[in-house]
C-alpha cells in the first residue's frame, strides 16, 4: 500500500456466513474498485451492504473468498496494521469523548509512531481541510461540538494518516437534512482534491447519485443488481428492483447530475439568467417559472424545454407539430 492516493480494491467471491443463521449475510460478492474511485453500496436495511464493507478492514472476518488491496491479500496482513491504512468513518462517529479534538485526530499518526511535530502539523492541516479552525477547535472536547462538526472531525480523523482507502458507513445518516447537504457538498469537494479510493455505504439513493462515481445497487445477501455510473443507472435500470429503488422522477434525478453547459442552445431569451455551472434540474425549474419560455444563460445562449429534453437524449425533432 505504498501508493497513497488511492488503491485498487478487489473483492473475489467474498462470503460471510454467521453461525446459527441459515442464509449467508453476503454471498459470492465480487467487485473491483479502481484507484481514486468512490463506490456507493446502496440497498435496503439488512441487505448485507455494511457487512460487505466491514470485511474490507476485517471488522468482520470473511468466511470465504479473497480481498486484495493493491494486489496484496489483506487476510494475510496483521489486522491492526491493515486498519491503520484504511480510514474508517461510521454513522455514530465514535469520537473518543475523553480526548480533545486534536488528540482524536492524532490517534492513527500516534499509533504509527510519527514525531510530535509532524503530528501537530498534520492535525492542524486536517482540521483546516474539514473547515474547522484549529486554533478554535483543537483543545475542545467532542461534547462541545455540534453533530455536523463532530462528523467533520470524524472525517479528519479517518484521513489523518493519509490512508489510500476509506470506508464510510452512512457517515451523514444521523445529521439533519440541512447539515447533511452541506456535509455532502463539502465531502464532494474534499474527495475531488484527495482522490481516495472510497467505499461508501448508504440506504439513501439520492445521496448515492450525488456522491458516487459508481453505484452498486444491492439486494439480499449483498447480491449486485447493477453496478454502474449514476447516469447509466438512472437512464437504464437493469431490473424492476433497481427501478423501484430509483423511485419516481428518474429524469429529474438525471438532470440534477448534468450541467447547464450540456444544454445550451443559441438564441435569445428573457428572464433571470442562469449560470453555466448550475445543474439542469435548476435550469428546468427556472424555465417552468418563466412560463415555459427559454431562459438566458450567463455568458451567452439560452436553455429551453427542448434543449433540456435533448440533453437527456429524447427525440425533440417532432416537437410542436
Amino acid at each position: 500500500m505504498a501508493n497513497k492516493t488511492g488503491a485498487t480494491i478487489e473483492l473475489l467471491n467474498v462470503s460471510k456466513v454467521y453461525p446459527n443463521q441459515p442464509e449467508p449475510a453476503v454471498e459470492n460478492f465480487t467487485m473491483t474498485i479502481n484507484p481514486g474511485e468512490l463506490v456507493m453500496l446502496v440497498g435496503p436495511s439488512g441487505c448485507g451492504k455494511t457487512t460487505t464493507m466491514k470485511m474490507i478492514n476485517r471488522i468482520i472476518e470473511p468466511s470465504s473468498g479473497s480481498i486484495k488491496i493493491d494486489g496484496q491479500d489483506i487476510l494475510t496482513l496483521d489486522q491492526n496494521q491493515l486498519r491503520r491504512n484504511i480510514g474508517y468513518v461510521i454513522q455514530q462517529i465514535g469520537l473518543f469523548p475523553h480526548m480533545t479534538i486534536a488528540e482524536n485526530v492524532a490517534v492513527v499518526p500516534t499509533l504509527l509512531g510519527w514525531s510530535k511535530d509532524k503530528i501537530r502539523a498534520r492535525v492542524a492541516e486536517m482540521l483546516e481541510l474539514v473547515e474547522l479552525d484549529p486554533s478554535v477547535f483543537s483543545n475542545r472536547y467532542p461534547k462541545q461540538l455540534s453533530g455536523g462538526q463532530q462528523q467533520r472531525v470524524g472525517v479528519a480523523r479517518a484521513l489523518s494518516a493519509d490512508p489510500p482507502v476509506m470506508l464510510m458507513d452512512e457517515p451523514f445518516g444521523a445529521t439533519d437534512p440541512i447539515t447533511r447537504e452541506r456535509l455532502q457538498a463539502e465531502f464532494q469537494q474534499l474527495q475531488a482534491n484527495i482522490g481516495k479510493t472510497i467505499v461508501f455505504v448508504t440506504h439513501d439513493f439520492e445521496e448515492a447519485i450525488k456522491l458516487g462515481d459508481r453505484i452498486a445497487v444491492l439486494s439480499k445477501r449483498s447480491k449486485i443488481e447493477q453496478f454502474d455510473t449514476p447516469a447509466n443507472i438512472l437512464a437504464n435500470p437493469a431490473s424492476e428492483y433497481v427501478a423501484s429503488f430509483i423511485g419516481e422522477g428518474a429524469a429529474l434525478k438525471r438532470l440534477a447530475l448534468m450541467r447547464v453547459d450540456s444544454a445550451v442552445e443559441s438564441g435569445n431569451a428573457t428572464g433571470p439568467a442562469i449560470s453555466r455551472d448550475e445543474n439542469l434540474r435548476v435550469a428546468l425549474d427556472s424555465v417552468v417559472l418563466n412560463a415555459g419560455r427559454p431562459v438566458p444563460v450567463v455568458g451567452g445562449g439560452r436553455v429551453s424545454i427542448e434543449s433540456i429534453s435533448a440533453a437527456l437524449g429524447i427525440d425533440v425533432s417532432r416537437l410542436g407539430q
Binding site: I59, R83, R84, Y88, L95, F96, P97, V107, V108
Partner: peptide, 9 residues
C-alpha cells in the same frame, strides 16, 4: 467508540 477504536487499528 469501541468500533472506531478497533477500526483505527
Amino acid at each position: 467508540v469501541m468500533e472506531s477504536a478497533r477500526g483505527m487499528g
